[in-house]
Design a protein around this nucleic acid. Structure first.
Lengths: 223, 223
DNA sequence: TGTACATCAGTGAACGCGCGTTCACTGATGTAC
DNA sequence: TGTACATCAGTGAACGCGCGTTCACTGATGTAC
């Protein structure tokens, strides 16, 4: 969301700095409103008001209401891809062992889900009945799984798991699945008989993945 | 969905067998349509037509459109609770070890998610912006977590994990999270570079949970 | 630097479609005697 | 068993509200000379 997706064809490219700012305000307004409501519940009027603009201005920037959501989705995916490329790049982890990689990946992923909980929830809800969105999300998941897979396969000697490729893919899914369900349910850890804090989730998730992979880690239970 | 929730106050109790059948047809129509579309995208007219009935008949049975969704949700939760109570009852597992319990729980849960994928997706999407639905879903998750926790705590000597209560709760979340994400993304295992079949998911998930719990299992990798 | 004109950006009222809900009416079922 | 009447169940056209989209218009920015 930090960069507008000005190159997208369904967004009418602004010619003046003023309207570029307006376009960003629309995108930010959408992100803000999506944290609370589903896309269907948000009206173009809501978006315009939240952006401090007008309905007419909206339609000079976007072909239709859907175009804004697509551009927000696009930005989210682009940012997410760039970030995961950076975090999971092979160079960054040269000389590091699997426990170190898993520890940071889990920590980082928890943080991302925390910060983007509202948006993730809204985009996912929309993807539930939108083939395009769903396919893009799947592709994104596959990409991240592949990055992690490469890191782990390069260290396959550390594993007890008999099928390193499957193990790597499944590890990514374990992490994503747990945090995804947590984000979607809006479980902030305050309600319920058993509360798991972010810190506990982190500890347990790291342990679970390492135990699953069959990595011998010193002090698996700490930090 | 097999039983209508006739006791619910927002559903107008039918006085004749004919209308009870109509009510069930409306509920079934909703379930069918929800497998493909979100609730907002389904019109009362769609529901009436799919049920082979009329809009007017709908409103003699339900207070409003939302009432039908609530009754479908209610039925789903009731059925889900009854089933998990039966599957995870302490009596059923007397004399059994944790690996046996986990193996069947995972197998069973995979099957449930498979059968109810469409409905789970739709109800979850709706819950994303509906506090009531979300809270009911959370309560459901907590309940199932508790059932599993009791089974595991009664066998805590089998565990290496230092905190059995946390371990039990987290195990439930691992299982749910992975299958939930899989159901929501609509990933049927046919697309993507790495495909995981139901069978593989089952094997890996059982192994992951047992490894996490720290249970010594003979032939963890088979069956 | 100033003026005229073209294009870009923005406004908000009006339009019209879709959908939830209502309602006057018809048909079916049950009950009283 | 048959008839009259009351209540339940169902029909589908009509209503009206909300919201996406359009459009005539005003204001701002940029450019030519």
């Amino acid at each position: 969301m930090t960069q507008p997706a000005t190159s997208l064809s369904w967004v009418k490219t602004p010619k003046q700095a003023r309207s570029r700012a307006t376009l960003q305000r629309f995108q930010q307004a959408a992100v803000d409103l999506l944290a609370e409501s589903s896309w269907d519940q948000i009206s173009v009027d809501d978006i315009a008001r939240s952006a401090g603009s007008s309905v007419g201005a909206f339609y000079t920037r976007f072909a239709d209401k859907d175009a804004l959501l697509r551009s927000v989705h696009e930005s989210f995916l682009e940012e997410s891809e760039a970030t995961s490329n950076a975090v999971l790049s092979p160079e960054r982890w040269e000389g590091c062992s699997i426990p170190e990689i898993i520890r940071e990946t889990v920590t980082f992923t928890i943080q991302v889900y925390r910060e983007r909980e509202g948006l993730i929830r809204a985009l996912t809800a929309h993807a539930a009945t939108n083939e395009d969105f769903r396919e893009r999300g799947l592709a994104q998941g596959r990409h991240i799984g592949e990055l992690l897979r490469k890191l782990i396969l390069a260290r396959r000697k550390e594993l007890l798991h008999p099928a390193p490729a499957v193990a790597a893919e499944f590890s990514a899914r374990l992490i994503h699945g747990l945090l995804f369900a947590r984000a979607l349910s809006g479980d902030t850890g305050e309600s319920g008989s058993i509360k798991l804090t972010d810190q506990q989730i982190r500890t347990e998730l790291i342990h679970a993945v390492l135990a699953y992979l069959g990595v011998f880690s010193t002090q698996d239970w700490d930090s």
